[in-house]
Design a protein around this nucleic acid. Structure first.
Lengths: 147, 147
DNA sequence: TTTGACGTTTACGTAAACGTCAACTAAATC
DNA sequence: GATTTAGTTGACGTTTACGTAAACGTCAAA
């Protein structure tokens, strides 16, 4: 690894748009293993540049990776995430393509809103439990070390 | 299957709290296979009564099943869901137990709120895309058959 | 009485999403 | 120049969440 663009461990590295990231750097930042990042590449979710065999990640790749992980947290499969990512870069010149894109966006948004309804209800239930417990604790004598 | 409580396919079955459900009934209602329901039982997520070997599900079991599936939609693993379900029925007599329950509720709620922030951002992005596409379509001449 | 719908257990299979070596290369440092 | 450090590619293992098939019991209707 002696590419000029790749910062050594010593140069703290600027966080600008020109930055190039190593796989180890991104894996540290996002708390995943390099294996995971390579796996995402195998699955077609990211396509980093190469210097020889070594992978070079741009700021865009980094953003994309964050996006992927957020999708995962929301419960989407990698296949679904790949499809969603594709929505950002499909060809928007044709009328048919635009309509199809619009349709898929609307479907996805509807799905997300259902998910949010689920989430809100779920949160509500746990807030209730917490409130009950808090009340019970207060009744038994408020505890000092509860922050 | 000749248990008095289990309705035959012909009796439409009342939807009250006394109802007892067969595995097939629940699997139809929730659009999952009986195999899935048995699997959840193996994993300790539901514990239906038995008549001989046949499983009998109460209204409570049915609610619980719905809860499990919602948890899945939100991206939780079965192991996590089991833990969350346990929060509803842990022993709340002891002070320590109450404090622990409170702590775990708070942690979970914080987790859920992070998830909701993720979700909101995600929804926002797709709304943006949809808005752009809509604008582009409008500019090209509003299409009649778009609802 | 047989068919068929529904139930059971046991056991093996599978897809997704990685983890874990092993064996190798290439640059950096001692 | 030997070693350390960071990267690479297979290849196989693992966990999760079920699917699938076999082999069987049970009842109700035809």
């Amino acid at each position: 690894m002696s590419v000029a663009a790749i910062p050594s461990a010593k140069t703290p590295a600027p966080r600008d748009a020109q930055r190039i990231y190593s796989i180890a750097e991104l894996s540290r930042e996002f708390a995943i293993t390099p294996r995971t990042i390579r796996f995402y590449e195998d699955e077609g979710l990211i396509k980093p540049r190469r210097h020889g065999t070594t992978r070079l990640y741009t700021a865009g790749d980094r953003t994309r990776l964050g996006w992927i992980l957020r999708g995962k947290r929301l419960g989407f499969s990698l296949a679904e995430i790949r499809e969603l990512l594709d929505l950002y870069q499909v060809d928007r010149t044709g009328l048919q393509q635009l309509r199809e894109l619009q349709r898929r966006c609307q479907l996805h948004i509807a799905d997300l809103e259902r998910k949010r309804a689920d989430l809100d209800q779920h949160i509500g239930e746990f807030r209730d439990v917490e409130a009950q417990v808090s009340a019970e604790l207060k009744q038994r004598g408020v505890d000092p070390e509860s922050t």
